[in-house]
Amino acid sequence: MKLLTLIPPAAAMLLAPLLFGVIHRTKAWFAGRQGRPLLQSYFDLWKLLHKGAVYSATTSWIFRAAPMTALAALLTASLLMPFGHVAAPLEFPADFLLFIGLLGLARFATVLAALDTGSSFEGMGASREVFFSALAEPVLLLALATLVRQAQAGGPGSLATVFQRLTTRVHWLHDGPILALVVSALLVVLLAENARIPVDDPQTHLELTMIHEVMVLDHSGPDLAFIVYGTALKLWLLAALVVGMVLPPVSAIWLNLLLATAGMGVTAVAVGVVESVMARLRLALVPQLLVGAGALAAAAFLLGLA
């Protein structure tokens, strides 16, 4: 294993909470406020790690194991995602299936813990989370299948080879429309999977309307830190997926990394802009949004076949 391959997971682990800072600053800028410090998420995580955890008497070992399981799954997933055209430490054909599976495992652990508390609010949140992700996951799979097909890697390549071929060999004028469809579908998935507006509002304080936040109400201290950090990692990984397929490589490695980091910043700003200019969708309309994203991905897949 080359030392260079450690860069993508290290970047994910170190810089992921920064994305929240960028999103918050963008929203603050739109609202004409100063906003909280860029590094506030790191301070919050540090504070949470030094607190004690409180466990309800009705919970079992599942509740304690879930935050660690979720974080472990997401950390493993970060070993699969290349960044800035530097290959990831783990790379094998069709590794994107494992990537999607690990995201699913993290969600499964969080949902189990939410159900374990026996709280009716958390059960409701878990139900919504599972419903929406059941719609978002096929979109992600379909979008990635389209990417792999467009990359013409001769069989299911790894994420690194797919990104490599997409950004160098694909004729953008010819395949551009298809890739644009895939990118827009992936951006909707990114917003939905990370519980951002227009699907879910991370800032809300009303349990009835929450989706992701309501599932983690009973976690405290280090457990909550794990979950918050895991959310940041998930946002980073999905954004890295979008950035990886769009950014073409340049000759120098450090320049590639710099460009990719800038791309992540742009994605975070875009999420912040969406959150500033859009209201949250009615819950009944969210499935429609996800089905629409699925239709885009399916159309891209079919157009790619012809």
Partner: peptide
């Protein structure tokens, strides 16, 4: 319904490509 219509639309798109 609208979601069902979208699903049907994707199906129709697939059928059109297959027919051609």
């Amino acid at each position: 319904g609208y979601s069902a219509s979208l699903g049907a639309g994707v199906l129709i798109l697939g059928i059109s490509f297959w027919m051609c």
